[in-house]
Design a protein around this nucleic acid. Structure first.
Lengths: 234, 234
DNA sequence: CGGTATGGTTACAAATGCGTTACGATACCG
DNA sequence: CGGTATCGTAACGCATTTGTAACCATACCG
């Protein structure tokens, strides 16, 4: 199976054994693999090579995985690259923290080769399928957006949005699962570099949230970074 | 080639020579042909026989071709019959006036048999194909639009619309459920890119709304975007 | 535990969009 | 040639939308 052939993957781990296992499996699947053994190297390589996916161990000497992820997410060149966190700890707390900082998926050690490739494939597929920009209808979880009719539904019933809220939701849905910085959202929603406070984004996100309703927050806050629409479907 | 075999064509001309030539060529192509030699006869025959096509000479004794055409268009039973105007004059002005009154095509004398049959075939084909793409009758909620009769009904009773209002409604109905920007409507209703203010659309939408009546607004405003006819049925 | 940063929430003035009315221009008709 | 219908534009006012500031709640940090 040559699913997402030729995708480039950056693997970050300081333990040689794990690193070599990862490289072996991924290469065997046909991926181009680059490596880094610490946070600084990971950031440099990510910025330079712009890999399609990053597999990041949380336990690193010096700068730990969370911080690496945070920095990746802060930089616009790298903040939309899917990241899989790798950790020995299975605790719920870790997962939550990881997702909050902007991870896309999680693998706990020990892992099977099958699990690894499945998750890698899933993420690459999602990233590739992302350009739904042209589709007439976007449907994510309980939210539906009908472009032709310019209407939005949440759990079946129509939601009345202002033009700006509509655009904001549209952008978030198009880029669901990926953290968007306030500046990115400003650029996408408010078009050109309008001189608008980044805090204004918060406002409209809040309004959107209440209008969309629902118990679980569909639009998640990634502290220090920005916002992200939960990737539920697929 | 027996393209649109068995179609019935009414030929209206007062000059025996031309009339016989027309009848000859058309009969040879397999069409059923009836004739009239003046306006009054043309109208009577058209109303009685409901031909599939009318070839109408502009120069007629008494009631001239324009008037015949105008009357054909006003009568519900005949106003959707394709008409080819026949004239000796090639002037642009004549063509324009003819099309304005509702002609579908134009043939200038002298004409070749080939030109005649080509145009006849083209029109018949178009008329026949039409009901496939555009139905003769659109019915959405309480509103009915009858293309044949060029009439509009709201909750059963007829509504008197100006030509422009009719066209606007037609476009909105055809694209019901989809938002149309003012610019899109301008293009669709006013045809060519006439230099018309987008706000003018609002005007006519407002007029349409009041004429259509009804409690719930059938034509919805999508703030910042345009208008949309409510998609009720299906 | 305070203190600080970050995000959520509320309030409000300014800007914008739209419905409406009025009116002039033009075409059509008797 | 006056009368009528149709249409495009301008102008006014109301309602909604929206950006900002201010204040409150919570998370993070030592």
């Amino acid at each position: 199976m040559v699913t997402m052939a030729n995708a480039q993957i950056l693997v970050v781990d300081d333990e040689p054994d794990i690193l070599s296992v990862l490289v072996y499996h991924l290469s065997r699947e046909g991926y181009r693999v680059t490596t880094a053994v610490n946070g600084q190297g990971a950031l440099t390589t990510a910025d330079a090579d712009r890999p399609d996916l990053i597999i990041l161990d949380l336990m690193l000497p010096g700068m730990d995985g969370y911080e690496v992820l945070q920095r990746l997410r802060r930089a616009e060149r790298t903040n939309s690259i899917p990241v899989i966190l790798l950790t020995a700890r299975r605790e719920e707390e870790e997962r939550v923290k990881g997702f909050e900082v902007g991870a896309d998926d999680y693998i706990t050690k020990p892992f099977s080769a099958r699990e690894l490739t499945l998750r890698v494939e899933a993420l690459l597929r999602r990233a590739k399928a992302e350009p739904v920009s042209a589709s007439r209808r976007i449907s994510v979880g309980p939210v539906e957006l009908d472009r032709e009719g310019h209407r939005v539904f949440s759990e079946g019933s129509e939601v009345d949005l202002t033009p700006l809220e509509y655009r904001l939701l549209e952008v978030l849905l198009e880029r669901r699962g990926r953290v968007q910085s306030r500046r990115q959202l400003l650029q996408a929603v408010w078009d050109t570099n309008a001189s608008i406070e980044t805090r204004t984004v918060d406002m409209h996100v809040a309004r959107l949230r209440t209008k969309l309703g629902g118990a679980a927050p569909l639009i998640e806050t990634v502290r220090g970074i920005g916002y992200r629409f939960r990737a539920l479907d697929k």
